[in-house]
Write a protein that binds this DNA or RNA. Sequence first.
DNA 1: GCGGTTTTTGAGGCACACCTAAAGATAAGG
DNA 2: CCTTATCTTTAGGTGTGCCTCAAAAACCGC
Lengths: 240, 240
Amino acid sequence: MAGRRGAVLSIESTSVQDYVKAIYAFTEWQDAAVTASRLAARLSVANSSVTGMVAKLVDLGLAEHRKYGPISLTTSGRALALAMVRRHRLIETFLVTELGYGWDEVHDEAEQLEHTVSDAFVARLDAKLGRPPRDPHGDPIPAADGSVAYPPAYRLDGVDDGHAGRLVRVSDEDPGVLRFLDRHGIGLDAHLLVRHGAGSPVELLLGPSAPALPVDAALTRALWIGGSVPHEGCTLRNPL
Amino acid sequence: MAGRRGAVLSIESTSVQDYVKAIYAFTEWQDAAVTASRLAARLSVANSSVTGMVAKLVDLGLAEHRKYGPISLTTSGRALALAMVRRHRLIETFLVTELGYGWDEVHDEAEQLEHTVSDAFVARLDAKLGRPPRDPHGDPIPAADGSVAYPPAYRLDGVDDGHAGRLVRVSDEDPGVLRFLDRHGIGLDAHLLVRHGAGSPVELLLGPSAPALPVDAALTRALWIGGSVPHEGCTLRNPL
DNA sequence: GCGGTTTTTGAGGCACACCTAAAGATAAGG
DNA sequence: CCTTATCTTTAGGTGTGCCTCAAAAACCGC
Ligand SMILES: [Mn+2]
Ligand SMILES: [Mn+2]
Ligand SMILES: [Mn+2]
Ligand SMILES: [Mn+2]
């Protein structure tokens, strides 16, 4: 049933790569249904653009889609998404560890470069960086074979009062969040205690003597914290 | 007189960048007149494509062109060309020295990446690499301010019998040439003595005891050798 | 001044990705 | 079961960027 529309664009189109990545992102840390409108919102395009583009993904064998149904990736779609995520995160890691970028400065640059570098480049970069397990924001870097180890992590707006754990990941899409954390000396693996104030804002306790730090709602959606148990293993997922 | 055609594309178009680089290349090591047909041949497009694109360069203030006349760069066109050449050569250097690419593998990758990396990336890369003066093929890397130091160099097909000097640069466009040099252990700065055989092919003498190496015509157009005098300075050119 | 070559013009094509507006499907509530 | 709000798809169309071919125009050496 592929090729129904004749002109089928390629797997190398940056748009195709971005759509596939976006679809993958919906199920990476949550398990949200991928609807056309959600995808449209995330990619800042009209709903109808998504319908059209998803049809192309289906033609390319990257996505599955019944009319009016949710969108999902095929095995090769997931493979492409993981390859792109791998590129993105390796590039971000390189920018921070080798070129001295701040963690708030790398996302946009990686967003471009991920479409340009060759497979050979990615392989050599991975080796040069010592096969890092995660990027500067705590996101796991898929291995070349597509396997990924996700640490247990809970979004801050979903944990109970009194939850304690280490900062596992920070969404890297809003540089402002990253700079906020910088200002307060909070980095990856920082130990945090979550306190629901009597009023609305969530507070973070950084240590026994530090003052409580109120964080706004946007921030609670950008931070992911480990479990209360001191040490836990990782869940190895190989989605391929 | 700019903007005559209305829709003027930007300085960030990869095509614009490639055209400007190509124009610059004609006068980098020779002083060839840049005609539309030569540019078309180099870029593998039709003559009329060049006419159209050059008109856009003129609109952008990057090129000067009288109808039926030769094409040249304006000051800002030259600045853009030098910025692109700088990017290209820094990236090639990075690929070889940091990622372990062979010098025959870097050109195509750099050709893509040069359009994608940011100015910040280039600045940081230059610092990381220790501000290298030349790329893996001997081509000088323009400084951030656009100044370039060109060593004296003569193309092999233009030197007399008995000319001796060091290998100053190798054109990086044909990986086969680079691999040929690898096979014979010839690298940048190798000392060469040029011998015009009685027959047609030029021969290279690599050392007192080494056998003469015959080189074909294509190769004589890809190699550039220093002067016969043992040690010479560099010509500093700041074309801006 | 002629003839061959080069350049420009004109008209058009194509790939890719996006949009608006209208029509169609879905699902939740009455 | 039907209504209605919401989501999704279709249809038709825009815009950018770059390219082509064919024909007309200019150029240049003789
Ligand atoms: Mn990122
Ligand atoms: Mn990241
Ligand atoms: Mn090169
Ligand atoms: Mn080079």
